[in-house]
Simulated assay, not measured.
Amino acid sequence: MAEIKLATEVRTEFGKGAARRIRRANQVPGVVYGHGADPVHVTLPGHALLLALRTPNVLIGLQVDGKDALVIPKAVQRDPLRGDIEHVDLLTVKRGEKVDVEVAVEVEGDLAPGANLLEYVMNTLRIQAEATNIPESVTVSVQGMEAGRSIFAKDIPLPTGAVLVDDPEAVVLSVVTAQAEPASDEAAEGEEA
């Protein structure tokens, strides 16, 4: 995974008023923490951060207080109406360090012929992977699966070096039989006539 560099400034103003001023300047307030160090409150460029966060589990390179820091997003708060980023929590990581992250579950292949539906019980899977080698997603094949079959977390192939954190017996995907829609009264009357 490529590392994205972002410019940061340490912020000294706190509270709602300061956060609003930061957002009006098209920047995002955030906090960098981890490895037992004191949290550092920072200001990040809004548009560049928005673009960086389009990649799941993105690795971001920052310069905080004159020191280089490698971080991953831990929590992102968004405006519920506009979707703008209001605040971001960033976790400091080191190269070679293992971190717990959620990755999307992607499906490939076609189900067995018939009226079957694929039900996602879990959209993401929690894994532990090296901070500089976090996969964007995991892929599982559903080729030829029939109704009544399920795929468990332990059945999903993980990238080299990744370890499953979720319960191995947790159902991730399930194939169910499609329910037939009951005929409406008008359609039934039309058939009788």
Score class of each variant (00 low, 15 high):
residue 53 L to I: 10
residue 109 G to C: 12
residue 112 A to D: 10
residue 33 Y to S: 11
residue 114 G to C: 05
residue 187 A to E: 08
residue 79 D to C: 14
residue 3 E to R: 14
residue 171 V to F: 06
residue 34 G to I: 08
residue 25 A to Q: 15
residue 179 Q to R: 15
residue 57 N to E: 05
residue 60 I to V: 15
residue 81 L to V: 14
residue 95 R to F: 05
residue 192 E to P: 00
residue 131 A to N: 03
residue 154 K to S: 07
residue 19 A to K: 05
residue 62 L to W: 08
residue 180 A to D: 15
residue 193 A to P: 00
residue 75 A to R: 14
residue 150 S to M: 07
residue 188 A to W: 06
residue 172 V to N: 01
residue 141 S to L: 00
residue 59 L to T: 07
residue 7 A to W: 00
residue 29 P to E: 10
residue 174 S to E: 10
residue 17 G to H: 12
residue 6 L to N: 13
residue 63 Q to T: 11
residue 188 A to L: 14
residue 167 D to P: 08
residue 50 L to S: 03
residue 130 E to S: 05
residue 88 V to L: 05
residue 153 A to C: 06
residue 111 L to R: 03
residue 131 A to L: 03
residue 52 A to Y: 04
residue 19 A to P: 04
residue 59 L to M: 10
residue 72 I to T: 14
residue 37 A to W: 05
residue 116 N to F: 09
residue 37 A to K: 12
residue 64 V to W: 00
residue 3 E to N: 13
residue 173 L to F: 12
residue 28 V to A: 13
residue 129 A to N: 01
residue 40 V to C: 02
residue 181 E to H: 07
residue 126 R to N: 07
residue 43 T to V: 13
residue 138 V to F: 01
residue 33 Y to V: 12
residue 149 R to E: 01
residue 132 T to N: 05
residue 98 K to Y: 02
residue 72 I to H: 11
residue 92 T to Q: 11
residue 4 I to E: 02
residue 87 H to L: 10
residue 27 Q to F: 06
residue 166 D to Y: 09
residue 179 Q to H: 10
residue 158 L to D: 01
residue 24 R to P: 05
residue 114 G to I: 06
residue 36 G to M: 09
residue 110 D to Y: 10
residue 47 H to V: 02
residue 153 A to Q: 02
residue 165 V to A: 08
residue 173 L to E: 11
residue 135 P to N: 05
residue 152 F to W: 01
residue 187 A to H: 04
residue 72 I to F: 14
residue 169 E to A: 07
residue 97 E to R: 01
residue 130 E to A: 08
residue 103 V to P: 02
residue 47 H to A: 08
residue 101 V to H: 04
residue 180 A to M: 14
residue 36 G to C: 08
residue 76 V to K: 13
residue 66 G to H: 08
residue 182 P to D: 08
residue 85 I to L: 15
residue 158 L to A: 06
residue 27 Q to T: 11
residue 63 Q to V: 05
residue 166 D to I: 09
residue 192 E to Q: 02
residue 3 E to A: 11
residue 110 D to V: 09
residue 39 P to R: 08
residue 119 E to G: 00
residue 140 V to P: 00
residue 160 T to H: 00
residue 165 V to I: 15
residue 49 L to N: 06
residue 26 N to F: 14
residue 98 K to A: 07
residue 54 R to S: 02
residue 86 E to M: 14
residue 119 E to F: 00
residue 20 R to C: 14
residue 138 V to Q: 01
residue 86 E to I: 12
residue 182 P to I: 07
residue 94 K to N: 09
residue 127 I to C: 07
residue 179 Q to P: 03
residue 94 K to W: 04
residue 77 Q to N: 11
residue 106 E to V: 15
residue 175 V to Q: 10
residue 100 D to I: 06
residue 135 P to E: 03
residue 139 T to Y: 06
residue 124 T to V: 08
residue 155 D to Q: 10
residue 29 P to Y: 06
residue 44 L to F: 04
residue 40 V to T: 06
residue 68 D to P: 09
